[in-house]
Amino acid sequence: MSGEVIFAVIEGPEGIARAMRRLSRMGVSRKRIELLTDIPYPPSLMGGETSDTRLPLFTSLGLVGGLALGLFLSVGTLLLYPLIVGSQAVISPPVFVIVYELTILGLVIMTFVGFVYENRIRKDPLRDWVIPADIDGHVLIVQVPPDMVEGRIRAALSEEGARILPIEDFEAERLEGEALVIEREPS
């Protein structure tokens, strides 16, 4: 995704609703818009869900992996090295306690791994745009579509009460890769 990027500051949910509606009317795809807020707003206010996530995949992998590990340890190894205790069959109900716990363990660990992957590793063209910490309001980042004119989007957002951030005024500085100050997207 290439092209100009607009940064704007919006205050309050009404401002968000107005700006998002206006961008939607202008035909700007939801995928080209990033809104940074300090609390989660309902997706309906943002013009719908943006559910582009692979988290369920990681969770499912964890579930299957944990189950496989549990079965290997408590069933597989018992078949390989049978240990008869308490006149119980080698494979009997107690082993399923281990299977259950390890299945859950795999699931919770992989869900976290998926979360880290999505936040830190997965490519996202809008993620490298970082913002100052001391901005008072919600920050809207719009990647201008190639067939649109940046000026019109700026003007439309301003009409809806958004404050356009003059990014040239910010000193380009980066703190250990953390999102703190505005910086141009690496090409």
């Binding site: 809104l35 940074l36 989660p40 997706p43 559910s51 913002i131």
Partner: peptide, 10 residues
């Protein structure tokens, strides 16, 4: 790397 984007909240 939390920024508070809607994707992250989701």
């Amino acid at each position: 790397g939390w920024r508070g984007s809607q994707q992250q909240w989701h």
